[in-house]
């Protein structure tokens, strides 16, 4: 039994260890501050700044959109709808299910819609796909948070004559640390997704300037450049993997800190 536990946790350190081991030698200021020179697949010079920036744009924009759409939905499901009603139960179930739908399916449908509308692969396409992918994460996390709010806090606020919307604002204040957790979780999923962006965002050597142009992202920088026969290009993949790992680790640590804050808050 101990062995099973050790092998499971061990695999985590193995993954991070190998990425560190391969990536660290390639990390330099040039690597993270320049775009690739001479084509991402064959050019030996330059770095991965285009992918870092593209990923931040993509994940940032879709997280903002998903939060703006997801929080009102979670509030509606917990405040406006009668609890225990069919619409409430089935909507929550459906968001649970949507959470499990793989990004390749979202990507495929977004891709065919884009083809149908004549839009080419672009940052915009990626943002739409990833937003759809992250809405269920936001809804589910906020929903779980709202369930932890004591019923009496809702009741006393309403007893002051507050409308449902005003009560919702008080509850949002109450679960604030948790909301940041939800946003971070969504951001983490958004920045790490490959299959969705592969079909919809394309790839580019340039820094992302316009939303209707293809943009590079870290996961795709890894995916495309890893299979290159040129060591320098492979190096860019390793460096991208390291940067992505660091971003994810920072996010996980932040969510951990926030989660303990939310616990303290609960009197």
């Amino acid at each position: 039994m101990q062995i099973s536990g050790i092998s499971i946790t061990g695999s985590l350190f193995l993954i991070i260890g190998i990425i560190m081991y391969k990536g660290l030698p390639y990390i330099s200021w040039e690597m993270i501050s320049q775009s690739p020179k001479g084509g991402f697949y064959i050019g030996k010079g330059g770095g991965i700044f285009n992918a870092i920036l593209g990923s931040l744009y993509l994940a940032g924009l879709s997280t903002v959109l998903a939060t703006l759409i997801g929080i009102p939905i979670a509030l509606y499901l917990n405040m406006y709808i009668k609890q225990g009603s069919f619409l409430e139960k089935s909507s929550k179930l459906l968001f649970d299910v949507l959470f499990g739908i793989p990004s390749i399916v979202y990507g495929a449908i977004a891709f065919s819609i884009m083809v149908w509308l004549g839009i080419r692969a672009s940052l915009l396409g990626g943002v739409i796909t990833i937003t759809l992918l992250t809405i269920p994460i936001v809804v589910r996390t906020i929903d779980e948070l709202l369930l932890t709010v004591p019923v009496d806090l809702k009741n006393v606020t309403k007893s002051l004559g507050a409308t449902t919307w005003e009560t919702a604002k008080v509850l949002i204040k109450y679960i604030k640390p948790g909301i940041f957790t939800a946003i971070l979780l969504a951001f983490g999923r958004a920045i790490g997704d490959v299959a969705g962006v592969l079909l919809t965002t394309g790839f580019s050597d340039n820094l992302p300037k316009y939303i209707d142009e293809p943009a590079a992202t870290l996961p795709l920088a890894i995916f495309f450049q890893l299979s290159s026969p040129i060591p320098e290009v492979q190096g860019r993949a390793y460096a991208s993997a390291l940067v992505l790992t660091l971003i994810i680790l920072i996010i996980v640590i932040c969510t951990h800190i926030l989660a303990s804050k939310q616990k303290k808050h609960k009197i």
Binding site: I15, I18, I19, K22, I222, F223
Partner: peptide
């Protein structure tokens, strides 16, 4: 101390698993 590590494992993007797969 172990359960948070599971959160890390869950947060690692698929492409990094792929890198680990190719390299290890």
């Amino acid at each position: 101390s172990v359960l948070p590590l599971m959160n890390v494992l869950a947060a690692i993007p698929p492409v990094l698993y792929g890198v680990w797969g190719v390299l290890f």
